[in-house]
């Protein structure tokens, strides 16, 4: 691939993944810039282009009127990458899919303003074909680099399919459960290097579930080993997996 044209786009999100990208500031990212041309990036520039080699999309698909913009990006792009939890799974935004009283609670008296109208939060793949997903909240910039590196060579990116526990144990991190805490690492997709547990913070499964996640077993473990109430155990994993759980709406 000769110097691919790369564009960055954002939808319903905190734009934290873009910040994470521009945060790079280190040699690794600057080096990457030798191999790609960034042609669209709202956080940094205002140009627009006809053809993109890679479109990187952040944020979830939560308004029907965004569909046309997404379809336009898809039409202009060879490869579409959804990056970050919102874009790849719906992320935290999808929490609202289970609520009906959130609008008033969040926006107060302005809750019925037209620009606040939205539908359920879905991943970008609910609107257009997505070729690759970079998971995480925020996405891991080194994983992003790695995926772009693979694509530069025409190689399908290698993304772990196993749970966070594998990476966490390779790091020889003290298990959160051994520290009297809880964790969702057993069912969470790895690729983050198990960074949260290594800092003493439980995994919240921000990268979503592994395939065939044993949700029932998780609930039981949270009750038995972490002392959660049944109700809390049952809802615990929802923060980042509202669209992935067996009770997804």
């Amino acid at each position: 691939m000769s110097r691919p044209k790369v564009g960055f786009f954002d939808f319903t999100s905190c734009e934290g993944c873009q910040i994470e990208l521009t945060n790079f500031g280190d040699a690794a990212f600057l080096e990457l810039l030798n191999h790609i041309d960034i042609v669209e990036f709202r956080e940094a520039m205002s140009e627009k282009t006809d053809h993109l080699t890679i479109a990187c999309i952040e944020g979830s698909f939560s308004r029907e009127q965004d569909r046309a913009r997404l379809e336009d990006i898809r039409k202009r792009s060879d490869i579409v990458i959804s990056y970050g939890a919102c874009a790849s799974t719906g992320g935290i935004n999808a929490l609202k899919n289970h609520q009906d009283d959130y609008k008033k609670c969040v926006y107060g008296k302005d809750c019925n303003m037209p620009h606040l109208a939205s539908q359920e939060a879905r991943p970008i793949s609910a609107a257009i074909k997505v070729d690759y997903q970079v998971h995480g909240c925020p996405m891991d910039k080194y994983e992003f680099l790695d995926i772009v590196s693979h694509l530069l060579h025409g190689k399908e990116p290698v993304v772990p399919t196993y749970p966070v526990c594998v990476e966490c144990k390779r790091n020889e991190t003290v298990c959160r459960y051994d520290d009297g805490d809880h964790c969702l690492g057993q069912v969470a997709r790895a690729g983050c290097g198990a960074i949260c547990p290594s800092h003493g913070i439980p995994c919240e499964a921000c990268r979503g579930f592994v395939h065939d996640a044993n949700e029932e077993s998780l609930v039981q473990t949270l009750i038995e080993k972490a002392g959660f109430s049944k109700k809390r155990a049952q809802s615990k994993s929802r923060m980042f997996t509202a669209n992935l759980r067996s009770d997804a709406q």
Binding site: Y162, P163, C165, V166, K169, R170, C175, G185, Q186, V187, V210, D212, A213, N214, E216, S217, L218, Q220, T221
Partner: peptide, 13 residues
């Protein structure tokens, strides 16, 4: 194996 997470911990340690 009903409760197994397939998390790999038993192997890795």
């Amino acid at each position: 194996a009903q409760r197994c997470f397939s998390c790999g911990t038993c192997n890795i340690v």
